[in-house]
Simulated assay, not measured.
Amino acid sequence: MSYEITGKLVAKFDIIQRSETFKTREFVLEKSEDIGGRVITNYVKFQCVQDKTAMPDRFSIGDEVRVQFNIKGTKWIKDGRENYITNLDAWRMEAVKLGQQDAIPGNAYNDMPPPADVVDDLPF
């Protein structure tokens, strides 16, 4: 299942080479919401893996971005005790116009190119 959130990019961290074949990178969005007249600010940390680790490079701190992500959880047992970790794995980032939720065309990362003009030659 895929999720999405829009917020302000407030931190980008370095790429970490976890093994010879696996690398990760983290970044943080600030998300503020007005709940009953009180502004609540949350900081949401995301993880990018492998070829997605370059995604945050296209954006500057302070940019409003939309992030699409998956929630992934892992369980392991160490010393007879169950341990759990949850990651928000980002797979797409795009710029957002301030004050709007619509993405700015052409600023999405890893988007397919726009389709060429298609001639509709169907007889109906």
Rank of each mutant, 00 (worst) to 15 (best):
F22Q: 04
T24V: 10
T24Q: 00
T24E: 02
R25Q: 01
R25S: 00
E26N: 02
V28D: 02
V28Q: 05
L29Q: 04
L29P: 02
E30Q: 15
E30Y: 02
K31E: 05
S32P: 08
G36V: 08
G37N: 06
V39S: 13
I40H: 13
Y43G: 01
K45S: 06
K45N: 08
F46C: 10
Q47V: 15
C48F: 00
V49N: 10
V49L: 06
Q50F: 05
K52L: 09
A54M: 14
M55S: 02
M55V: 03
R58K: 15
R58F: 08
F59K: 07
V65C: 02
V65T: 03
R66S: 07
V67Y: 06
I71C: 10
I77G: 03
K78A: 14
D79L: 07
G80R: 07
N83G: 02
I85H: 08
L88N: 01
A90W: 00
M93W: 01
K97A: 15
L98T: 11
L98N: 15
Q100T: 04
Q100R: 10
Q101M: 11
Q101G: 13
D102E: 14
A103S: 12
A103D: 06
I104S: 03
P105V: 05
N107H: 12
N110Y: 10
D111Y: 13
M112T: 10
P113M: 11
P113E: 12
P115E: 11
D117Y: 14
V118A: 15
V119A: 10
